[in-house]
């Protein structure tokens, strides 16, 4: 083997389909499970969050308008890209968490399968959560689920990849755009996942990924008036009350989950009811 010096990756943020450094210039050290330095990912600031919200908001109309069929196809495309780069994720997960290869492979497989599972939900949500309502009068009346806008996601510390995908996929499959804060201990798979997203057909800004400290950024997610919903599954229970209090300012929809479920999609959707007279 040669003595070649390998090229190390600079882990940056993923905002609006681009990979900027944090505006703050701050980074933090991420070590392997064995305590060896691995990388200096960005320590995102509240201003990075602000920029990401702008990106997510501007991506929202386009993504929301994409047909359910198209959204499902793009989800499947992300899964394809992830499958193609699975070994990279396995390596990163092992490096940062020290789990066995078998376990790391299982997490990546589940992540891919979860994307495919959510891909199939895109065009079934109105059948699941919609209704035509037999009102007592000459009106056609129906209720459909609709995306709510921009949703924040505080991903759990572990599993770093599956936890992130589990939180992001249900949020965006309905047409929302999101800003996700990755696991702070193991943020690298999240940024590598951003590379997957960048090479899939997902429009820039639909998913934005920040790395940093939940304790610093989560309150800014909660208080941001242009974030409509917030998944706090990754926030420890005892800290959630504070976020809910801050989120009350714009009556953010705040939820947390422990398993994949269509309820996780519907938690970040609104029900819209439309009335129209029936006459000639």
């Amino acid at each position: 083997m040669s003595n070649r010096i390998d090229i190390k990756k600079t882990y940056k943020l993923y905002i609006g389909g681009a990979f900027p450094r944090t505006e703050s210039g701050r980074t933090y050290e991420v070590k392997s499970s064995k305590g060896v330095f691995v990388a200096n990912p960005c320590l995102a600031s509240r201003k990075d969050l602000k920029d990401a919200v702008v990106a997510a908001r501007s991506a929202y109309p386009g993504w929301n308008k994409a047909t359910a069929y198209n959204k499902g196809q793009i989800f499947y495309r992300i899964a394809e890209m992830l499958e193609g780069r699975r070994s990279q994720f396995v390596d990163e997960i092992i490096l940062l968490t020290g789990v066995t290869k078998l376990k790391a492979e299982k997490e990546v497989s589940e992540s891919i399968d979860r994307l495919v599972w959510y891909a199939g939900w895109s065009d079934k949500l109105s059948a699941l959560a919609g209704s035509t309502n037999p009102v007592a009068g000459p009106y056609y009346n129906f209720t459909i689920p609709e995306s709510m806008g921009v949703v924040g996601v505080i991903a759990p510390e572990a599993p770093s990849l599956l936890g992130l995908i589990d939180a992001i996929a249900p949020v965006i499959v309905s047409g929302n755009t999101c800003i996700a804060l990755a696991s702070s201990k193991a943020p690298l798979p999240a940024i590598t996942f951003a590379e997957v997203l960048a090479t899939s057909d997902l429009p820039g800004g639909v998913i934005n990924i920040l790395t940093g400290k939940s304790s610093e950024l989560a309150p800014w997610f909660a208080s941001h008036m242009d974030i409509d919903g917030l998944d706090i599954s990754g926030v420890p229970t005892k800290l959630r009350g504070e976020l809910r209090t801050a989120g009350a300012e714009n009556l953010k929809r705040i939820s947390s989950f422990s398993a994949a479920s269509p309820d996780r999609i519907l938690a970040f959707m609104e029900a819209k009811t439309v009335w129209h007279p029936i006459g000639n």
Binding site: P138, Y139, P277, I278
Partner: peptide, 13 residues
Amino acid sequence: LSTLPGVDQVGAE
């Protein structure tokens, strides 16, 4: 006659 607005049956009734 084409400039006349329509009548919504349910509303008129």
